[in-house]
Computed example of a mutant assay.
Amino acid sequence: MIPLARRAAIGAVLVGSIAAGVLPAGAAQARPLTPATDREVTFTVDGTVTYGTLHLPVHRRGQRMPAVLLLPGSGSTDRNGDQPPALTPHTLAKLADALARDGVASLRFDKYGSGRTGLGAYADKPETIDYPAFVRQADAAYRLLARQPEVDRRAVRLIGHSEGALTALMVAVAAEPRTAGVGLLQPLAERFLDVLARQLHEQLAAAVAAGQMSPEEQRAIGRAVDRAVADLRAHRPIDTSAMPAALAALFQGLGGPSRRYVESIDAVDPASVARRLPPRTPALLTCGTIDPQVPCDTTTPLATALARAHTAGPGRVVLPGVGHDLTDPADPDVLAPAALDALHRFMRCGAPAAR
């Protein structure tokens, strides 16, 4: 962190006090309004140009606003929270709009493998990209956001959705400037391969319940899944011989060019990272009661870790009737009211006075 010089801080207080006594009441409010705008931004990290959108809400000229870095989920998810053309929930774009309505600026960007950024410097060697590269990319975005002239660097937060929540945690533990809060929305709450194995075991159980396979087949395939996970963690060739074709293809993909990424993200335990957060950091953790990817009970170790780190509220918030994409079941085009309420509570927690 590069702290403000003590003398400069004192000077700012004195100037503010003098100005308060000289300017007529309401002078600050009389400054002209600047309309909301999207600003295309770029930054370079590890030899790759990353493309993003800085969303600025309506604000007074010269105003310094709170801001949030928004981080997407797994796979080739772009700055809007989409994997076009098949998956377009616009999760991050909707979050940016919701924050703007509260006067909060935001930055979202196309991470490696998505949007205009693509694989960048890794295009000719995709097998060399690992999870720490994504963390460095997010950290560079956080620093860029804090440097924007419209942003109050005391009030920059991180919000990650799904796998992006883990990246938010990784950046937050050593963020410069110190983060004003970290939001974990439907987060990757367990180690990567533990989540994958749990989901596959649940699918096998559902197939038995639907009469699509026998319990004996379930046990055999389940053992094969556990062996494959152990192979990945031990850096061994993956044995897929006892798996159905579709499942074998999944693990062969995990053991292919993306293996370095898979092994490096699986090495990170979200709860262990959360325990390293600076004390009194405002933290939000959400889980939806109809989210099959992140059931609420799987977030308990992460919620406990946030408490042990002595973070501030709101803490874990259960979202009734909300799924993984945070949308309103009655209107999938908008975020669920419960998710918006949790977001508002988080942004108010520990917020500094307006500048």
Score class of each variant (00 low, 15 high):
Ser74Trp: 13
Leu71Asp: 07
Val318Cys: 13
Thr128His: 11
Arg355Cys: 12
Ala30Asp: 15
Leu166Gln: 09
Gly313Leu: 00
Leu285Val: 02
Asp341Arg: 03
Pro244Cys: 06
Leu70Asp: 02
Thr77His: 06
Ile10Lys: 08
Ala197Ile: 11
Arg61Leu: 08
His324Leu: 08
Pro32Arg: 03
Pro35Asp: 09
Leu54Trp: 11
Gln293Ala: 10
Arg154Ala: 10
Ala267Pro: 07
Ala197Cys: 10
Pro278Met: 09
Leu14Asp: 09
Leu54Ser: 06
Leu285Lys: 00
Leu326Phe: 07
Thr298Lys: 15
Ala28Phe: 07
Pro314Glu: 15
Val22Leu: 04
Leu145His: 13
Leu306Ser: 15
Thr167Gln: 10
Leu284Lys: 10
Pro301Thr: 04
His161Ile: 14
Asp102Asn: 15
Ala206Gly: 02
Arg60His: 14
Leu193Asn: 00
Ala246Gln: 11
Ala283Pro: 01
Asp78Trp: 11
Ala67His: 03
His310Asn: 12
His310Tyr: 06
Ala123Pro: 07
Met1Gln: 11
Asp226Trp: 04
Leu185Lys: 06
Ala141Met: 13
Pro295Thr: 04
Pro352Glu: 01
Leu69Lys: 03
Asp269Ser: 07
Leu70Gln: 07
Ala165His: 13
Leu119Ser: 08
Arg39Thr: 13
Arg227Asp: 15
Ala249Val: 04
Ala86Tyr: 12
Ala209Gln: 12
Leu343Arg: 12
Ser17Leu: 11
Ala245His: 13
Gly181Thr: 02
Ala330Tyr: 05
Tyr112Leu: 14
Arg61Asn: 06
Gln252Phe: 07
Asp82Tyr: 14
Ser106Glu: 10
Asp38Met: 05
Ala100Arg: 09
Thr91Asn: 12
Gly62Trp: 01
Val151Thr: 09
Ala180Tyr: 14
Asp239Trp: 11
Gly315Trp: 00
Gln199Ser: 14
Arg345His: 06
